[in-house]
Design a protein around this nucleic acid. Structure first.
Length: 306
DNA sequence: GTTCTAGAAC
DNA sequence: GTTCTAGAAC
């Protein structure tokens, strides 16, 4: 696997800079300003409607960054269309991609593909869910039938497990020990197309810059929802509308005061928290490496991981 | 989702 | 004076 897996390459896979033709348009417009008042008004109107189209496309998640996942998920052949710097793996029903702005040392997204064929015929172009049901978790809960929900979530969970194994291999290679990995959804995502985060539990990354970043991945807060919890909702037939209401109410959780989610220590700003997370990781690594030196392994064979 | 930046916090 | 956050723009 080599360094194609290393977090440092994540930054290479980050989204292309947003093209900004606005400046050019304005220059061209101003050079013609005196030629004709009527044409001038026309240009202003054009420019305004272009601006509106662009703004609304961002809000609808079809812009260059907010709509990227939908583009990936609907590719007929992701492994030829996407470079290895973006695509980790693909199956008939799912793909796993590098998060363009990883919030930990390892951070991937698992997406259901569309069309999403039934497991019985993986090569068919038939989809057991409409595309609208794959907009986000809420849409999946509302617009897919129970059987399809379970199938989509199971396919995503299976791929997430595969991604976890790859991450653990890499952890062992680069740090000499393995640490926890979280698998879950954001209650309120900002990118279109339902995506499952597979993220190592260290929160050490240059792209983690704000309180909201940190809070949105806290495993204990409620904004980050483990896939096992979502699968329980469906398995136990819990009221879908109640679950969706709880998702919508999660926005306020992001304003929770900054504390280390491992030891609860409060911090007055992000740089201080980031320093602390480095220390937490160093401490965890030291303990794990000592344990391995003593026992020849990180966990005993009859013990559950973590 | 990120970037940019004004002004709050220090 | 510098650091940092939060809100608007994209």
């Amino acid at each position: 696997m080599g360094n194609c897996f290393s977090p440092s390459t994540f930054t290479d896979s980050s989204a292309e800079p947003t093209p900004t033709p606005l400046e050019h348009e304005q220059t061209a417009a101003s050079s013609r300003r005196l030629s004709s008042a009527a044409k001038g008004k026309e240009r202003v109107r054009d420019s305004l409607s272009r601006h509106h189209r662009r703004t609304s496309s961002f809000l609808m998640g079809t812009g260059p960054s907010l709509g990227a996942l939908r583009t990936y998920a609907t590719l007929p052949n992701p492994s030829t269309a996407l470079p290895p710097s973006k695509l980790l793996l693909s199956t008939p029903n799912t793909i796993a991609v590098f998060d363009a702005y990883p919030k930990s040392k390892y951070h991937f997204l698992v997406l259901p593909r569309y069309p999403f064929p039934p497991q019985s015929e993986p090569d068919s172009n038939r989809s057991i869910v409409p595309l609208e049901a794959l907009d986000d978790l809420k849409s999946l809960l509302l617009k897919a039938d129970r059987r399809a929900k379970k199938e989509v979530l199971r396919a995503m969970a299976d791929t997430a497990r595969e991604v976890e194994e790859m991450i653990r291999d890499e952890m062992l290679k680069t740090e000499g020990f393995e640490w926890k990995i979280d698998v879950g959804f954001h209650a309120i995502p900002s990118m279109k197309h339902v995506h499952l985060h597979v993220i190592s539990e260290d929160r050490i990354s240059p792209a983690l810059k704000t309180k909201k970043h940190h809070n949105s991945f806290r495993p204990d807060l409620g904004f980050f929802i483990s896939i096992m919890e979502v699968q329980r909702w469906i398995q136990d037939d819990q009221n879908t509308l109640d679950r969706i209401e709880s998702l919508s109410g999660a926005q306020a959780l992001l304003d929770t005061p900054l504390t280390c989610f491992k030891c609860d220590e409060p911090f007055s700003n992000i740089p201080k928290l980031k320093q602390h997370m480095e220390k937490e990781f160093a401490k965890e690594k030291e303990i794990a490496l000592k344990h391995i030196a003593r026992h020849g392994r990180q966990r005993s064979s009859d013990e559950e991981m973590f």
